[in-house]
Design a protein around this nucleic acid. Structure first.
Lengths: 286, 286
DNA sequence: ATCATTCTCTGACCTTAGTCAGAGAATCCG
DNA sequence: CGGATTCTCTGACTAAGGTCAGAGAATGAT
């Protein structure tokens, strides 16, 4: 049923709101070039590499578009000081003006679109779109296996540690540096290239059991079912590696996490390690 | 605020669900050709003229795409029996198979998109999209002034009469044929080329006053604020024509309409005509 | 120091999308 | 009936979007 609703909505939407994208019309610049300009503006300077990844463009295509924007005096590029193979693009003042112009046009279209609705309808539409936005983003989060020294994993760990430090009554000290443990597997969930959830498993001595480590969900993403999805994913991985049981420890302060583990079928067990921060211990048979 | 939500949603949406449109990928046919195929399939045969209007294509461009589909054996064209300048296109059996294939692909994408969500989340998403769909369609309804003998006006009148006949306790007889009255102005609200609301004004004897006639809103569209919008539009027209006051009559059975008139600032007045179907009379000073 | 890899760029090339003018047949209007 | 109009089509053209191979500089791995 959701599928028919989605397809129906898609038809309505592309017919009438796809037009928000037409805001580049009249600028004399083609769509792809305008998108590139917006991306550079939004990122406040980005390497060619990043732009290519984010817009999913061919390097030749992108390069040519950059030359065009340079030719129009809207963008300036220079080698990245840190890695001189890379080039960094940023908007010139004229580019910033063109960016503002595009933003203004797009905003005008949006205003014109909702203008016929009453304030109450606008409020209902906003509410519905907020919900749809969150759920669509949640549905399109990508789970990727990474090593714990992958930049995305490092970033996720940094935020995980920061959150524990803020929430634990006596703070949190992660201990030594973060060497990749043999045999452990980490998974990062990303949305728009940002990590939004993280977690990993490592085999425990008896080999029947895997331990779930570093479960973290970005605060803005809680309630979107991401934690449960990550947990299921890690359990599947553990099972695929031949484990029959998963265990994990956590702290009383993390009540949403504890509630989630319980909903996911985890049961409390006795302390199984000497982690000073752990106060609650759970296990689940796969 | 709604504007930021809309723009944010638009970004999320075009990045992730615009991909529903990519369902043509792998068919070896470009997007525009696939769209044409879908349009012919949906209409179950359409004249070149209609296709051109509906897809807003250049006649040369369309013609070439039709040749291509003919070449692939998916579409057959023949002169329209009624007007031999026109040609009618319809799907061949192979074309119908290609059509089904496209539909299936699009459906698969939709299924894959919502698959990571829990059933409850899917339900929430469906609900949000249903709301957004209705409101976006409501916002993009177009109001057009027409003569009462315009095909769209006739269709709207037909449905207006059918509804009154069904709802009035003793049925409804519209009286004589529908000659365009001098000085009267009619407005039809359309969505996807279908009339969804209708109404008109005609000057009354004293010339200070205009009477609102034939207010009708499609049953599926009630509650979307379309009646109120039509009413405002007609009032503006009346004011522009120099009237200071609008009046209207209606029947007790039309309670939603009566409630709407009252919300819009109309006040009950004495009977001002001998319309046997009218039981309630309203007026508003502009 | 060497070799492989990464990064950006240019050149050559292709498809898709779309525009415009005009031809030829059919139809409509007076 | 004759001229204007409608409809579809072809030819000629352009811009936009995109792919691929390879060159040249910088960097990383051993």
């Amino acid at each position: 049923m959701i599928v028919e609703v989605l397809r129906g909505f898609n038809r309505t939407y592309t017919q009438r709101i796809g037009a928000l994208d037409d805001s580049f019309l009249g600028t004399g610049r083609p769509l792809a070039v305008s998108r590139l300009l917006l991306e550079i503006g939004r990122a406040e300077g980005a390497s060619v590499r990043e732009l290519r990844d984010r817009l999913d463009l061919d390097s030749g295509h992108l390069s040519r578009m950059l030359r065009r924007l340079e030719g129009e005096g809207l963008v300036a590029t220079e080698p990245d000081a840190a890695d001189r193979r890379r080039r960094v693009a940023r908007l010139t003042p004229a580019g910033a003006a063109a960016y503002d112009d595009l933003e203004r046009r797009s905003e005008e279209r949006a205003v014109a679109l909702v203008e016929p609705l009453t304030p109450r309808q606008q409020e209902r539409l906003a509410e519905a779109l907020r919900t749809a936005d969150l759920l669509v983003r949640a549905a399109t989060v990508r789970l990727t296996e990474v090593r714990s020294d992958h930049p995305m994993a490092r970033e996720a760990t940094r935020r995980y540690v920061a959150e524990l430090a803020a929430r634990f009554p006596d703070g949190f000290d992660p201990g030594g540096p973060d060497a990749p443990e043999a045999g452990s597997t980490f998974v990062v969930a990303t949305s728009d290239g940002e990590p939004v959830a993280y977690g990993g498993i490592r085999p425990v001595l008896d080999d029947e059991t895997a331990e779930i480590k570093r479960m973290w969900v970005d605060a803005e993403w809680r309630g979107a079912g991401l934690g449960a999805r990550m947990l299921r994913h890690l359990e599947t991985l553990a099972a695929a590696q031949g484990h029959r049981r998963v265990v994990l420890d956590t702290n009383r302060a993390l009540h949403e996490a504890i509630a989630m583990y319980e909903r996911a079928g985890y049961e409390r067990v006795e302390r199984y390690n000497d982690n000073p921060y752990a106060e609650a211990f759970f296990a689940k048979t796969l």
